[in-house]
């Protein structure tokens, strides 16, 4: 783990939903940096603003104010996008959401392969890499099944494979283990860690599952839209 290169630089991130009486400040003046190869947990009660933070950093939610830099690029300055966000997502960011959200008419393999193909990886190479990932995640016996034939855990592992397919710089996961039992949940968390440590990927995971916290290098805690603490993980596993 290098930990030296800054991947994400968030400065004063603020997100306000709605306006007037219906105004909700979901995230207020949140600043932090993330280095490459770091696995970071984002803790906080429901409604704390974890999803808001992840969607903003994942470039699928507009900022109200603040600056977000990924690598050397200023990506968004307040609500104004400075890069082509979709192309940025395609190349640099992988997502795992609470639900797997696989494309229902594609097989497990095709779901992963598609993520590669939209990034201009030739079909053959994409297929081979997808297969390799699914093997790694232990769902290779399910490659030709449609998502509805897979269990929740299997679907989630396919979604993880999809998120990792393009070797993104940044992986964002929003309560990825909510649908999994504790053993499977822990496996996914450990997978994130090994990906981060082996490939230098930055991983940010929102969770309120405290059982697997030892997996993380660092813990951010949020409450009422404000970042309360940011500390190295003391109970970190070997």
């Amino acid at each position: 783990m290098s930990g030296s290169t800054i991947t994400i630089d968030a400065l004063g991130l603020t997100k306000v939903y709605g306006s007037g009486n219906a105004e909700v400040v979901a995230m207020r003046d949140v600043s932090f940096t993330l280095s490459s190869g770091e696995v970071v947990a984002l803790l906080g009660p429901s409604g704390a603003g974890k999803s808001t933070l992840l969607t903003v950093v994942g470039l699928i939610n507009t900022l109200t104010s603040g600056k977000l830099t990924i690598g050397n690029d200023l990506v968004t300055d307040g609500p104004i996008a400075k890069v082509d966000l979709r192309s940025y997502r395609r190349r640099f960011i992988g997502y795992v959401l609470q639900k797997a959200n696989l494309i229902p008419f594609l097989t497990a393999l095709e779901n992963v392969q598609l993520a590669l193909e939209i990034n201009d990886v030739p079909a053959r190479t994409a297929r081979a890499r997808a297969l390799e990932l699914l093997q790694y995640l232990g769902v290779d016996h399910r490659v030709d099944n449609l998502p509805h034939m897979l269990s929740g855990g299997e679907q989630q592992r396919v979604a993880v494979a999809r998120a990792l397919a393009n070797r993104p710089r940044l992986v964002l996961a929003d309560e990825p283990t909510a649908a999994l039992d504790s053993v499977r949940g822990r496996q996914v968390m450990e997978l994130f860690r090994s990906v981060a440590h082996e490939h230098g990927t930055t991983v940010l995971v929102a969770t309120h599952d405290h059982r697997a916290l030892d997996v993380f290098d660092r813990i951010l805690e949020m409450e009422d839209g404000v970042l309360q603490s940011d500390h190295r993980n003391s109970e970190k596993a070997g």
């Binding site: 699928i60 979709r86 960011i93 959200n101 494309i103 229902p104 008419f105 993520a115 939209i118 999809r162």
Partner: peptide, 16 residues
């Protein structure tokens, strides 16, 4: 529409 939103999320181009 949900799948299309997902395609956009993972960065699929409009042409797809």
């Amino acid at each position: 529409l949900h799948d299309i939103a997902m395609l956009k999320l993972i960065g699929a181009r409009n042409s797809v």
